[in-house]
Simulated assay, not measured.
Amino acid sequence: MDLLRIKDFTLVARYGGFGKAARATGRPKATLSRRVAELEAELGLRLFERGSRDLRLTEEGLALFERAGQLLTELEEATAAIASGGKIPRGRLRVSVPLLFAQTAMGRLAAGFVLHYPEIQLEVTADDREVAMIEEGYDLVIRVNPKEDETLIGRPFLHDRQILVASPHRTRPSGDGVVPVIVRGATGQQKSWKFITPDGASTMMVNPVLSLSSMIMIRDAVRLDVGVASLPLSLVFNDLNTGKLVKWGDMEGPAAALWALYPSRRLLSPRVSAFMAWLKKCFPEGTSDELANFIE
């Protein structure tokens, strides 16, 4: 079986079309189309359903893409390791990270990484959705409190928690007073918040007055005393120290853990190993204040 045909097939499957794959890789569209047709003829199977505007993998095509993509990646990693003597990580590394982590920390982290490993071409995508690593061609993903997934392994490298913060000019109401709050998501759905103070558990009646899609925007609105909000400790750590914000309590619920994950069925590449080691170097203890000081 011709490996070039399989490689071109995985390119088309990864990018979702012949034209998209050709533009992304510089391979001629006609060549990609011909090689995929030859592979389908060789296998006696249709690998793509071809519509007027889109291209979709068949069940057989998806199965081949998942298996072939892993094998080709391992082959590329093995040849790269041999070529470099197994010492210097090199090649492309694709990473998906949550939006807030990207906005606050990833720029500095990524810049330091590529300066330390100049032979690695790092590509970072900020996305809060749960990407499909193998199908979308990612080598590593960072997720907050990920669900159990037997196809992925990794470790937590940062821990954070949600706290209730307000402007220092706002007084916490007593009794049944309703507090204006800023939320991430739809307004009007939340009636009360539960949080923990040094005196014990407390419940506060809330009125969502503003909805914003970014935690950074929420923090800025709290600074202007629009309302109170639940925010990660790391994001407001320095504001608490300088008195720009005050803490009313700890929000109920589990702490947030950021995990670095990669496919368990693939060999751990030198690039992924290097990135995991870099995360450990940047956050040796994995605490909220470490992250706060990193993004300062």
Score class of each variant (00 low, 15 high):
1 M>E: 04
5 R>P: 02
5 R>L: 11
10 T>G: 01
15 Y>H: 12
16 G>S: 08
19 G>K: 10
19 G>A: 13
20 K>T: 07
24 A>V: 04
25 T>L: 13
25 T>C: 12
26 G>E: 09
27 R>Y: 13
28 P>D: 05
32 L>C: 01
34 R>L: 11
34 R>T: 02
38 E>F: 10
38 E>M: 12
42 E>F: 15
42 E>Q: 13
42 E>Y: 15
45 L>N: 05
47 L>T: 01
51 G>V: 04
51 G>I: 03
53 R>L: 14
58 T>M: 07
59 E>K: 15
63 A>R: 14
66 E>K: 12
70 Q>M: 13
75 L>R: 09
77 E>H: 04
78 A>T: 13
79 T>Y: 13
84 S>I: 06
85 G>M: 14
87 K>L: 15
89 P>A: 05
89 P>G: 00
89 P>Y: 05
89 P>I: 07
90 R>K: 15
93 L>Y: 05
98 P>L: 12
99 L>I: 09
101 F>S: 02
104 T>K: 12
104 T>G: 01
105 A>V: 03
106 M>F: 09
117 Y>I: 00
118 P>G: 03
124 V>K: 01
125 T>F: 15
131 V>R: 04
133 M>P: 00
135 E>W: 11
140 L>N: 04
142 I>L: 11
142 I>C: 00
143 R>S: 05
144 V>N: 02
146 P>H: 03
146 P>W: 05
149 D>H: 08
156 P>G: 07
158 L>G: 01
160 D>S: 01
161 R>Y: 12
164 L>N: 00
167 S>T: 07
169 H>G: 08
173 P>H: 11
173 P>N: 09
179 V>M: 15
180 P>D: 10
181 V>N: 06
183 V>A: 08
185 G>D: 08
190 Q>W: 10
191 K>F: 12
196 I>V: 14
198 P>S: 09
200 G>Q: 09
210 L>K: 00
210 L>Q: 02
211 S>D: 06
213 S>L: 13
218 I>D: 04
222 V>T: 08
224 L>N: 08
225 D>P: 01
225 D>C: 10
231 L>R: 00
234 S>R: 00
236 V>W: 07
237 F>I: 01
237 F>M: 11
238 N>F: 10
244 K>F: 14
246 V>T: 11
251 M>I: 10
252 E>T: 10
253 G>K: 08
255 A>K: 11
257 A>Y: 13
260 A>Y: 01
262 Y>A: 03
263 P>F: 06
264 S>L: 13
265 R>D: 06
266 R>Y: 07
268 L>R: 08
269 S>G: 06
271 R>L: 02
271 R>P: 06
278 W>L: 04
283 F>T: 00
285 E>S: 15
286 G>F: 09
286 G>Q: 06
286 G>R: 09
288 S>G: 00
288 S>C: 02
291 L>W: 07
292 A>D: 04
293 N>K: 15
294 F>R: 08
294 F>H: 10
294 F>P: 00
